[in-house]
Design a protein around this nucleic acid. Structure first.
Length: 587
DNA sequence: GCCGTTTTCGGCCCGACTGTTTTCAGTCG
């Protein structure tokens, strides 16, 4: 069972307990534990099996540890069974609706026996919901729209989609009256692979009403959810929600921290602040005088220590500025306090791209066009990785065609100077773990990239054996898009990632972080684990056109989220050093 | 339910907005 599976079960338990009206601090404790599990780079199942004490993990105590062990051993949690005997498990889907929280879900169940979204719809039509205390005409309308959205858009937006969807809006908001600066906050600033909604901050002195009014008048807004003096909220036609907050200069930094999140990061910042007699909110960092009641002082009461910039906010809290990509409560706060944050890899560090396709298989551009595009990006090298013959539908390379391609590569090398073009193939890992190319070709390739494209429904054991066998071939350099996931479209196939990484360390095989925003495979947590185990990570675009090469930045962002530094990333090496790495087995 | 530079018990982040309210509960981020 994967960490995310365990997290999901515990999340259901937390949601149900919350609906039951359990102690809110207990609920928070569960959610903190869930965050730990989701962020953990090692499989918790393996830790449990090795007899490690799970309560050593932050936010995991005796209770949750016992739940986890029980879940791993028996496949279910007794406590969850008890709860579902009292309230139906399907109530968790009601809580996912915008405007319906645990209290309202409980009320709907108690009063109207509503257990599912479908049953809620029936009651909405019957007019019974409107009659309930605490509900009214407006909340019924809001719930109706939420159900519509829920049906239309259950998932989150991918990062590149969100970027594109707000392009026009950004240009529009910049022209808002009184606005001096616009910043993107939220998960988009943290560069998460998927985005729930977009948070924008506008720096603006005085009354924010004109700015908000301008914002909600955007022609691309399908719906206006709210508009006040400091906040406006719209939904674009795509279903993407965008919030705008108007913030004065003196508070812009603290608001940026606050709205960038993550929520978990903010909670840790504030908890630490309280201990130092400080209060942190979106308006600044304040020292609360001895014996004073912060409530009575108001939101900007006490002595103002910081607020205008993020740097001064973190500094007032006694720590280094934390890059947004790290703000997930995965140890970054402690690292910032002790001044040992990583020096994260940057786009400029990248010296080459080690996966791309040409018209020899399913690419849209010639080898020469791809090579020239790479020189424009300032790269020192590239690997041309057209598919192998198992990918017949895209005219994958047979051994014969591979040799022919090498002739063309030789010609292009003559015409395009200043960049090394490595002969490579993205070789299919066949059903049984053998490679889709004979050894004599493998030996003549400069870079051997392997990946799974077929029989993705194999069970975990079979798939893991298959990948391990392929990696063990002595010619292999890089395992590409290791889990095969397509974000929002296809789950990862079953694979023991930990076993693959341990083997990669031993075999000196690199793993890919595929920079295509549809894949971003490995994930942030996986590449973090690779780093821990000393497995080199390659960030490749898998480009099928010159434009596709631009996706490198998404991969770098994901690598940064996984705490990678330039030395952890193989394609930050100079051509000379990368060549040396390719010869690693020969010494 | 978790945790400890004040604590093994008693705390646990903070504010805005909305809608249904007549002083506030619920939801959200």
């Amino acid at each position: 069972m994967e960490n995310l599976d365990i997290a999901r079960v515990l999340e259901t338990l937390a949601d149900l307990l919350e609906i039951q009206g359990a102690n809110p601090f207990r609920i928070r404790a569960y959610r903190n534990a869930i965050n730990t599990i989701e962020s953990l780079s090692r499989p918790i199942a393996a830790m449990a099996e090795a007899g490690e004490d799970l309560t050593e993990l932050p936010a995991i105590g005796d209770n949750v540890a016992a739940h986890i062990v029980e879940l791993l051993e028996t496949g279910h949690i007794n406590r969850l069974d008890e709860v579902t005997a009292e309230i139906p498990i399907t109530l968790v889907e009601l809580v996912r609706l915008d405007g319906v929280g645990p209290k309202k879900a409980k009320k709907l169940f108690d009063e109207l026996d509503v257990k599912t979204v479908e049953e809620l719809e029936v009651q909405l039509d019957a007019g019974t919901v409107e009659e309930l205390a605490g509900f009214g005409k407006k909340s019924v309308e809001k719930i109706r729209r939420s159900i519509e959205d829920y049906r239309k858009h259950t998932g989150r937006f991918q990062i590149h989609e969100a970027e594109q969807l707000i392009e026009g809006l950004l240009r529009w908001v910049e022209k808002a009256p009184g606005v001096e600066e616009i910043e993107i906050a939220g998960s988009l600033r943290r560069r998460k692979e998927t985005i729930g909604d977009v948070d924008l901050l506008a720096r603006c002195e005085g009354d924010g009403t004109p700015a908000v009014d301008h914002f909600v008048a955007f022609e691309g807004a399908a719906r206006v959810l709210g508009a006040g003096p400091t906040k406006g909220s719209i939904v674009l036609h795509s279903g993407l929600q965008v919030d705008l907050r108007v913030i004065p200069t003196r508070s812009f930094g603290s608001a940026l921290v606050y709205f960038t999140g993550s929520k978990e990061h903010n909670v840790v910042l504030r908890t630490g602040a309280v201990r130092q007699g400080l209060r942190v909110n979106e308006w600044g960092v304040f020292r609360i005088p001895e014996g004073e009641d912060p409530e009575a002082l108001g939101k900007e009461g006490g002595e103002r220590l910081a607020g205008a910039t993020e740097q001064e906010v973190y500094s007032a809290l006694g720590m280094a500025w934390v890059p947004p990509v790290l703000r997930e409560n995965r140890g970054e706060v402690e690292a910032a306090r002790e001044d040992r944050l990583p020096t994260l890899v940057e786009l400029d560090d990248i010296r080459g791209d080690l996966q791309m396709h040409s018209t020899w298989s399913d690419g849209k551009a010639s080898i020469e066009e791809m090579a020239r595009a790479c020189t424009k990006l300032g790269y020192e090298y590239l690997a041309l990785t057209d598919h192998s013959q198992a990918m017949a539908m895209v005219q994958g390379l047979t051994p014969e065609r591979a040799r022919k391609q090498w002739e063309e590569i030789a010609e292009v090398r003559e015409r395009v100077k200043g960049i090394e073009i490595f002969r490579s193939v993205e070789i299919d890992i066949l059903k049984d773990g053998s490679l889709d190319m004979p050894d004599e070709i493998l030996e003549e390739l400069d870079v051997v990239v392997i990946s799974v494209h077929s029989f993705m429904d194999q069970d975990r054991g079979t798939m893991t054996e298959r990948v391990l066998r392929a990696m063990a071939h002595p010619s292999v350099d890089i395992l590409a898009h290791p889990t095969g996931r397509l974000i929002n479209r296809r789950e990862s196939f079953e694979l023991d990632v930990e076993a693959v990484l341990v083997a990669a360390a031993e075999l000196k095989v690199a793993v890919e972080l595929n920079a295509n925003p549809n894949r971003l495979d490995f994930s942030d947590v996986h590449v973090h684990r690779a780093k821990e185990l000393g497995v080199p990570v390659v960030i490749s675009t898998d480009a099928h056109s010159p434009a596709g090469l631009e996706n490198m930045r998404f991969g770098v962002d994901q690598a940064r989220r996984g705490w990678l530094e330039a030395p952890d990333v193989l394609n930050t090496k100079s051509l000379k050093d990368f060549r040396a790495w390719l010869g690693r087995r020969r010494g």
